[in-house]
Design a protein around this nucleic acid. Structure first.
Lengths: 154, 154
DNA sequence: AAAATAAAAGACAAAAAGGTCTTTTATTTA
DNA sequence: TAAATAAAAGACCTTTTTGTCTTTTATTTT
């Protein structure tokens, strides 16, 4: 469905939305640990997301990544677009460039409705939902304790 | 959604279902042309599909690939399983190995219903449908003329 | 101003996916 | 039985994806 890079990107942005609250910022190290990703790899991905305006960052002590008020209106679909592009939303299931409603491939009609559902789901899911629901779902094998300190492994 | 290899596999098996009728067989060359794939690459894929029992083949003059009566009951989902494995049907959207109904990731509940729809669609689509409906949809830029000879490029 | 902190940038490496080419094996037809 | 045909097998190459490491830049705190 998504590339590995995109999976990490989505995990990271959800983690930041849930964690970097009340003016706090969250470091690459904390993100990598919090979502179970390679540290240097997620760093590069976060850089890209920053360039595309899907999150903000600050250097120096107490710096890190966060999401500003405006950016919370972005969706998971926007993250997917930024990393994997629009192929999930527009491409033919069989990879045929000419396939369209007017000139459909044998799978076209079956696939369009699924593609529509995926598109809707991803674009309806806004980052704000995760901020307002910080305990909805796990992102790694590291337990989130109530006071936001990551402590134990399962 | 699918790997390129899997896209070619699905295109090929649909092409064979539509083309290798009345005891006819269809050659690698004809398949590659008919679905717009690299000849040697699709050869390797067809070999794999043969081993997994998703099509039959015969060597020598007038040999080629075909689908026997029993195999027509297989589905596109079976082809996907044979090439890409079950990850599309069972994996977490965010690639989290521990994610489950009991221990869901933040996207889990949104994603399960889509995953169910994809699974259903792919497993409901049987190869027989394409045999009985040989003109439903295009597979390449090569026109299928009524008498089954591929002639012109668009 | 110096030291410490943390992201930005970019070079590099490993693994996987995608694709090509040649040789071998099996079958059929002349 | 020899020649022709076509798939099977496998070696090899290229590109993309994934991941690592080091250096640089910006910011803050002491």
């Amino acid at each position: 469905m998504f590339s590995k890079t995109c999976e990490y990107a989505i995990r990271a942005i959800i983690f930041i939305a849930q964690t970097a609250v009340n003016g706090k910022k969250v470091s690459i190290k904390a993100i990598a640990k919090g979502i179970g990703s390679p540290e240097h790899f997620i760093a590069k991905i976060l850089q890209e997301l920053g360039k595309k305006g899907l999150l903000q960052s600050a250097k120096g002590p107490h710096g890190g990544f966060y999401i500003d008020e405006e950016t919370f209106s972005k969706s998971i679909g926007d993250v997917v677009m930024a990393i994997d592009g629009d192929k999930l939303f527009v491409d033919c299931a069989l990879g045929l460039s000419f396939c369209s409603e007017a000139n459909p491939c044998p799978m076209h009609h079956r696939y369009v409705s699924i593609k529509k559902d995926i598109t809707q789901m991803l674009h309806q899911t806004k980052l704000l939902e995760f901020k307002n629901n910080p305990d909805a779902g796990r992102l790694s094998n590291i337990l989130n304790t109530p006071n936001n300190l990551c402590k134990a492994k399962i």
